[in-house]
Amino acid sequence: MKKIKLLVLFILLLGLTGCNQKYENGEVNVFNWSEYIPDSVIRQFEKEYDIKVNYSTYSSNEECLAKVMSSKTGTYDILVPSDYMVDIMLKKDLLEKIDTASLTNFSNLDPNYLNQSYDPNNDYSVPFIAGGVVIAVNKQKIEENITSYNDLLNPKYKDSIVLLDDERVVIGIALKANGYSLNDTNDYALAEAKEFLLELKPNIKLYDSDNPKGSLITEEASIGVIWNAEAALAIGENSNIEIVFPKEGIYKWIDNFVISKGAKNKENALKFINYILNPEVMKRVVTYFPYKNVNQETNKLLSDSYLNNEAMNIPDRIMNNGEFVIDIGENITKYDRLWSEIK
């Protein structure tokens, strides 16, 4: 008898949580970075268009590529890869052409971020948001002025740095610290980068790509080499934190909407992309996750507290001085190796 009761209880529970609405216009499978589009925006889209959004997340470009390649074609409709990953995905023939003319909100985008080298005519990708890797410093704990990546090597900072758990970023800054390009694959350059990282190792408290701001806010870490919006959010929670753009120049990126080859819900995917490009919607996105906005119309709606905040709205001179990561082809195995060696 008891078992039957238990069963009934569970079925009730299932029923309670299971009262799913039916969506008239089908669904769309979005595979996006964690912490990128607020939940409320997605719910609103579902309501307005009567389309169910299956939203899943990844925390690096490589993870996105791996998951897409190991899934049946057409499993995901929308992906949000960065610049160099668009290039790789194009080479692997993973992307569907996007007819930008059909996107009524495409014209809202800032032309400075269109027609980039990885997709010269924006045939396959629609810029969504941009940003960079910056240094966040807790001024109460760190007295010195940090201006360069090389300043991070100071032995005083033992066990106090949080780094993004991303090999292109970490190796990239090591290369930049030594005056090389983010994308250098020469053995001597990588050897110097390795030297730099081994010297940095005792100072590293943890690697975290998903929530590096967390350890900065709780003051477990006093320096972070992190995405700019993470730094901005950390500053919001803990006013001791300041942002530094290292003088060697930043690692910059543009993340783009793309539609994966064989996507089953192409129409819905276009609707979703167009929806996000709406200035009002984009405003909500960048106020929630304050990366660099690339939507001109949205800029007109944003308040000064966003526009004048350098951690959020990275100044154009810094962006122009920054460097993109590019696909380095087979040389990536050199990076993979170096990464395992220094970790």
Partner: peptide, 19 residues
């Protein structure tokens, strides 16, 4: 797991990482 088949442990895993 694929799209739309997030389970509670997976959701919590990503939530712990993200705060």
């Amino acid at each position: 797991a694929g799209p739309g088949s997030n389970t509670l442990p997976l959701k919590i895993f990503s939530m712990i990482k993200m705060g």
